[in-house]
Design a protein around this nucleic acid. Sequence first.
DNA 1: ATCTTATTTTGAATGAATCAAAATTGCTGG
DNA 2: CCAGCAATTTTGATTCATTCAAAATAAGAT
Lengths: 149, 149
Amino acid sequence: MLPFAPLDSAAWSERLRETGLKSTSGRVAALEHLSTHPHTTANEIHTALTKELPALTLQSVHNIVQDLTAHGIIRRIDPLGPGGARYETRTDDNHHHLQCVRCGRIEDIDCAVGAAPCLTPHSTHGMRILQADVTFRGVCGECDKRPQP
Amino acid sequence: MLPFAPLDSAAWSERLRETGLKSTSGRVAALEHLSTHPHTTANEIHTALTKELPALTLQSVHNIVQDLTAHGIIRRIDPLGPGGARYETRTDDNHHHLQCVRCGRIEDIDCAVGAAPCLTPHSTHGMRILQADVTFRGVCGECDKRPQP
DNA sequence: ATCTTATTTTGAATGAATCAAAATTGCTGG
DNA sequence: CCAGCAATTTTGATTCATTCAAAATAAGAT
């Protein structure tokens, strides 16, 4: 079970309108997919939605994730390594990530503190700190069983 | 003053050979540039070195940063937003980053704990944690003065 | 000095993301 | 319910970062 129940399409529509954005089938479908499949790329979203929305183009998916990111409805992450940007719908809970250094898999992990910023640096270089992004790197169970290549 | 004195070219040559890599002018120049200009892209390295090494191609710089990363001599970071991968020579001190959300500038910041992992998550999803990557996001002094666009 | 092999160059190709203009769709007010 | 405006998507092309393969070169060992 996900820590946050994924919203249904009506709820996503409402959220879009509240934010001043139009509710379109592409946006709602992308949000539904992202909430059940976190950390997916624009490409993966497009592939997944092409069955129910054959007309939706990859460029539109790029537009969608960019617009939604700019309005704070989704969050962009740029994981280490190849593969491009990934997106997620959990934006306000200050959660963190676990990434396997072998297979690249990403998992969510709740923040111990909860509120952002959950850490504060010693010296800030004159910067006003808003939040701390934490990514734990390690080796996942699957990859740990397998001998290294 | 940098927290770690940048190595001179002889020292970088030695470090390369110790690692089992050949010491080439491109690699040494890239390492010298990276140690004095942290968080630069392959493109920026190439542009900076083109004066002293006109024959060095961008593809070679990509080869170089990839090889050096694979051997742990430099570290790759993928900052949020556009612009591609960046690299740095500080690999063993478990330091963290500050990134301005407006201009994208990145600064180094020493880790409070020092040894990796400096944080441990509550639930690990069965993953063996090696280190914690922390990036503080905020608004730098420069951008805070300027009114928002 | 030469030989072996790693590295760089050359030239081309891929993949992610962006841009501009035309077509379409959602939503507002009549 | 229909018309009209504006936001959004599509279409088509382009840019940028990165990778690939084969040929040329240079580093370091013998």
